[in-house]
């Protein structure tokens, strides 16, 4: 959770909406969304919908999953490939 908040605050200041669902309290929502693993981060917008599983300790993979890597790189190093 802390990992995610930090990443979002750093990469997307003020540009994100985060909804937290406790599957133990609302298992029917987990059923509807077919969630298996905890924690699961579902990126709904912008498309494509993507699921990132785990405690998000691997920041590089999280950023990649959120399509943020390119923005991050662009800020740092002038947008080359």
């Amino acid at each position: 959770m802390a990992n995610l908040r930090r990443l979002c605050a750093e990469e997307l200041p003020g540009q994100f909406e985060l909804v937290i669902i406790d599957v133990l309290e609302k298992p029917q929502l987990a059923e509807e969304d077919k969630i298996i693993a905890t924690p699961t981060l579902v990126k709904e917008q912008p498309p494509p919908v993507r699921r990132i599983i785990g405690d998000l300790s691997n920041s590089a993979k999280v950023l990649h999953g959120l399509n943020l890597q390119s923005i991050h790189k662009a800020k740092q190093g002038g947008g080359s490939n």
Binding site: E31, I36, T38, I53
Partner: peptide, 26 residues
């Protein structure tokens, strides 16, 4: 818990199957 069409999953860190267990109990 079958594979969903167009589903893309990335594993980024430690996880458990707590959500699956919660669904089973439900």
């Amino acid at each position: 818990a079958s594979p969903q069409v167009g589903e893309e999953t990335i594993v980024a860190g430690k996880f458990d199957l707590g959500a699956l267990l919660a669904r089973i109990k439900h």
